[in-house]
Nucleic acid binder design. Structure first.
Ligand SMILES: [Mn+2]
Ligand SMILES: [Mn+2]
Ligand SMILES: [Zn+2]
Ligand SMILES: [Zn+2]
Lengths: 127, 127
DNA sequence: TGATTAATAGGAATCATTACTACTTAAACT
DNA sequence: AGTTTAAGTAGTAATGATTCCTATTAATCA
């Protein structure tokens, strides 16, 4: 993997946020630095970075989002605004339960908690 | 919601499998009964059934799948063949951890375990 | 510095899903 | 039972996120 200013910029943008953005959002940010970068380049590099374990992909309700936080952690997703928050929960006994199941060989897991974030909760109350 | 033979057939197909199928798979099955049903009808009805809580939607790696099992349960997904298996794991302490977090009001959660299913494991060994 | 070839920009293609519309039919009302 | 109504359907067009294609640019290295 050669270096390219496009990939560097994409990685920097992602590392500079905790918002779990879409490719489109990253595209709009990177454009400030590299105005003629193309959306295809953003997708290609995000996939390369994910394949090279420099970032991770997360699937939120059918849409692709990205996360530069490589530690194993989980997420909360607001069903109103789709905002994603990091979650640190300890899943007691899960590793054991998984390895006891002889139908498969597990390599990972992800937990998604859903609900309403505080911002959306307040909006609803105001109406 | 009026009754329609199309919706009845779709629900029956889904209730008759534990494979967590896609709309396309359900379409091909229902076609045996109703040869001129359209794919749009399958999607529309699956969405209605899900909105009416008669089935549930599950998101597997960016694709939409459906499940007639309404009990809260989790899933294993094979990263090779995309097969989905039902999982019954008890997430000890999760409810508490979630309600202690004051950034949101959680209403649900889902756990996806990933790995290689036995069938795919054997295939790999044979090569 | 020149050769090699990965990476890019821009645009076309893909594919799952949704939207549109004229026709059909369930079911509520006489 | 016949009439009215609006929900449901088939068929097809549209959408939108993502991937693919190709001529051109640029990183790397002898
Ligand atoms: Mn995260
Ligand atoms: Mn299931
Ligand atoms: Zn929210
Ligand atoms: Zn498998």
């Amino acid at each position: 993997m050669r270096k390219s200013k496009q990939r560097d910029a994409i990685l920097q943008v992602l590392q500079g946020t905790d918002s779990h953005p879409t490719a489109e959002w990253i595209f709009s940010r990177v454009r400030r630095e590299i105005p003629n970068i193309s959306l295809g380049t953003v997708y290609r590099n995000l996939n390369q970075l994910a394949d090279g374990h420099l970032i991770q992909r997360i699937f939120d309700d059918g849409h692709l989002r990205f996360d530069a936080n490589l530690h194993r952690h989980d997420h909360f997703r607001c069903i109103h605004c789709q905002r994603i928050l990091d979650l640190e929960v300890e899943l007691v006994g899960l590793d054991e339960a998984i390895s006891d199941d002889d139908r498969f060989n597990a390599t990972g897991y992800s937990l998604e908690v859903t609900g309403v974030c505080n911002e959306c909760q307040h909006e609803t109350e105001e109406i």
